[in-house]
Design a protein around this nucleic acid. Sequence first.
DNA 1: ACCTGAACACCGTTCAAGT
DNA 2: ACCTGAACACCGTTCAAGT
Lengths: 235, 235
Amino acid sequence: MVIARPRRPPEPASTSPSGRPPAARPYHHGNLRQALLEAALEIARLHGPERVSVREAARRVGVSPAAPFRHFPTRRALMTAMAEEAALRLRIEVAKSLGRERGDALARLRAIGRGYLAWSRRHAAHFRIVSARDEIDLDGSATLRHEVAVVRGMTEQALREARAAGRVAARHEPAALALLARATVYGLARMQLDGHFAQWDVAADAVPQAMEDTLALLVELMAASGKADGAPDRN
Amino acid sequence: MVIARPRRPPEPASTSPSGRPPAARPYHHGNLRQALLEAALEIARLHGPERVSVREAARRVGVSPAAPFRHFPTRRALMTAMAEEAALRLRIEVAKSLGRERGDALARLRAIGRGYLAWSRRHAAHFRIVSARDEIDLDGSATLRHEVAVVRGMTEQALREARAAGRVAARHEPAALALLARATVYGLARMQLDGHFAQWDVAADAVPQAMEDTLALLVELMAASGKADGAPDRN
DNA sequence: ACCTGAACACCGTTCAAGT
DNA sequence: ACCTGAACACCGTTCAAGT
């Protein structure tokens, strides 16, 4: 299912196609860090994150087994760097999905969840890494913490606005609702990652719809609480 | 935090304390399979499931590196056997929690979730294994599939009864509500596993309460949908 | 500054041979 | 039937040495 991108090993290239002096890297790779990240992601796509090895990444890039350790002091550092990249892209996708939404606060909440879920589906390998706590240094990465905090902020903001507009019952704290939304969305993403949907009679090709529906159901229940509350409906 | 159980290597014991003929196992272990499972679980508790190695388990039990392969053809088989044990105990805990509950159908739904979450907290290492799709053969284990199906069955049963009693809006399918409950509960359990709660300003000692509250919130939203529905309240 | 080569202490797994 | 011992092809990581 995963289409391998055309991967062209960075050619010893003693002559360059351009007129400029040749790259000529018999020794110095020049962009080893990024090349290793890409190679590692490729391995994760093909065989899963747990099968990523520093040696194999080095082999694919064409350097010695020890070369990566100049850029990544441990295997964990390599995995964490991949996770940072993933978290950044995930946050951007969520922000885009939110930006496109023209509906009310609860529609925006749903858009956030939808963006998150869509990205997790489209970039399964990358998502697995960003949520593979065993393999990365979550607490040690400021980048990682920041990206998560941004998504959390968007979620709580939407829910604060929803409460202010009487779209959810006033007795529910936005923070509590945000945590519920978070748990549900993360749970859905993980269920797919961990292969649980088959057990719930959801076929592989029905998973996106099931995710959407479940998210929509949660948002609907929140909205119903606003009505049951008898809070002002400002529409 | 994990208290190591008194682990007594199975003593060469050429003389037995009882009057019976000595166990005398210089070669045949007698209960190697179970001993390996326990040793592996101990490693998982101390260092995490990803650090479980067949060799280390063999070493702890006092057999050669090749001995385990008579009982577990691959490392994955060993991990899967641990997961089966975990799934069984988890299901029993959930059933107990459900059995103790004297309230209505939604209270029973909540009891199921509470049992699941409590077990996942108390047996974190075991829970990590049962939900570590990368490390186990979920689809290949009939036991695993069965235990998951049983918990699912309890969940849907509670929601069918809740709908019949008008406790949730009739327009919501029990199966859809069950999937939502499942995603939420699994998401909460995974958030702790993956160390996400700190990012949501939930301190370690507040996690159990946050889980309970979030589950309670979901159930309350479901109940509110029943009221908004104008369905008969048979209390 | 960046990379190689060789080494060390590990893995999972296989297989002939022992009991 | 169950286990050992030795081997193979891997790891992550270190470190002196090369460019």
